[in-house]
Amino acid sequence: MNHVFKVEDLSVAYDRQPVLWDIDLDIPSGILLGIVGPNGAGKSTLVKTALGLVKPLSGDVRFMGEPYSKVYKKIGYVPQKGSVDWDFPTTVFDVVLMGRYGHIGWLRRVGKKDRQATRDALEKVGMFEYRNRQISELSGGQQQRVFLARALVQDADIYFMDEPFAGVDVKTERAIVGLLKELKANDKTVIVVHHDLNTVKDYFDWLTLLNIKVIAHGPVDEVYTKENVRRTYQADTLMSMEREINV
């Protein structure tokens, strides 16, 4: 198995508060990986650091051996739904089209191909009939589908999704899971920040348990054990070290 995404010795701190500590991850291609951990475990930070949005304290992130800036066209990103203003004057179609901007590049205009890709992606997530709606008129689940479509048009090899199931209805959740499995079937690598332990086994084939450090990482059957989960959800990390010192 070739490793499409590799993290080495990664540490991230906000001021002097470590958020990620000494992370080593090897992620083979074609897997569906869930990153699970308690609040404040650094799940989102890990994704943001991978995408160059947060500067690490130390360590290195590589995609197929290259830094992010060289391969950004091959990487799709679905941020948390709350990260944008849903009252923005723009339509569903426009938002999805934005996913193509990376391929289009500076100054150049949107082309026919980009519009076609957008239409296809909208069909795929079942939002085509809503294409001319302003995004403020969507439900939470529909918003998530739009974000997903936006990532799909990026036509990436690796997808990062930050809590795609947060605040969506059951139907959408099922649809998203189906889509994720389809991506995997097409040899894409999908990395999902997730918070619901109950569904881990059904949704993912690989699992990273994270709480500032990597507690466990590997195929879900090996990693998803009572002991590992317990270790993840009790802060057994540098945080505890800090507590020890402060007392």
Binding site: G52, P79, M98, G102, L107, Q154
Partner: peptide, 22 residues
């Protein structure tokens, strides 16, 4: 006129603009 696409993207989703290479 020149940077309409870029300005729109940055205004709507600052972080995404960064990940798309702008």
């Amino acid at each position: 006129g020149l940077f309409y696409k870029e300005m729109k993207l940055v205004s709507f989703d600052y972080a995404l603009a960064g990940t798309l290479g702008f």
